[in-house]
Design a protein around this nucleic acid. Sequence first.
DNA 1: GATTTATGTCGCAAACATACGACATATTTT
DNA 2: AAAATATGTCGTATGTTTGCGACATAAATC
Lengths: 109, 109
Amino acid sequence: MTYPRTEAFDAQYQELAKYAKVLSHPARLAILKYLAEVKACISGDISNEIPLSRTTVSQHLQVLREAGFIQGQIDGVKINYCLNPETVEELKQLFNDFMCKVQSDKCCK
Amino acid sequence: MTYPRTEAFDAQYQELAKYAKVLSHPARLAILKYLAEVKACISGDISNEIPLSRTTVSQHLQVLREAGFIQGQIDGVKINYCLNPETVEELKQLFNDFMCKVQSDKCCK
DNA sequence: GATTTATGTCGCAAACATACGACATATTTT
DNA sequence: AAAATATGTCGTATGTTTGCGACATAAATC
């Protein structure tokens, strides 16, 4: 949702918020972890692994793809999915930068 | 949303997903950062700082409070809000644990 | 005790997210 | 070329999130 009043203000937090949204569903965290374990696999493997329909998994894959977390390599009928290390690295960076600003010495106690 | 089929499966990702959801809105990231900067403040200060109505800020504060990110200390009519370092630390831990499982050596290249 | 100040909750509309069956497409295999 | 396989997109129902005005509460001040 974009609200005119907040657009400018939100800008600096938009990127991390977007990544956080992608990570805010257990299925997507599970897919990322599964991909890290198997290094590469086809989408059918994922819907066998997690208790969701093929359609739903496909939609979660789309969210992960659009956010740049995963990449798909077409191989005939199959599509081999794997993690995109650049995006994983960027997330880590953004998150750590944010955490530095919200350090434990910055509380009222 | 809770789906019976996925409940057991989701369990191990539920916690991080929940934290990620809290961080998935720019206004909430902004509030956390503002609180870190000023160390403690009242809710009115926050709605003056960010371009959202008092009501909306109050609701974002509720989300942050319920997730344990912030604490409110009643002082007469005012409520002094501040960060909760335990939760910030727990988030950092959960996130780092997850990132270790999704390391850059775990891709198809 | 009336007014002001600080904050919270309710109710609602609009937007967004989730899950999944049904259908579409495209490449293999027979 | 028909069947099988792998995957994507559409439509839809249901639930959740967001923003905000209106109302409620409760302490402080006049």
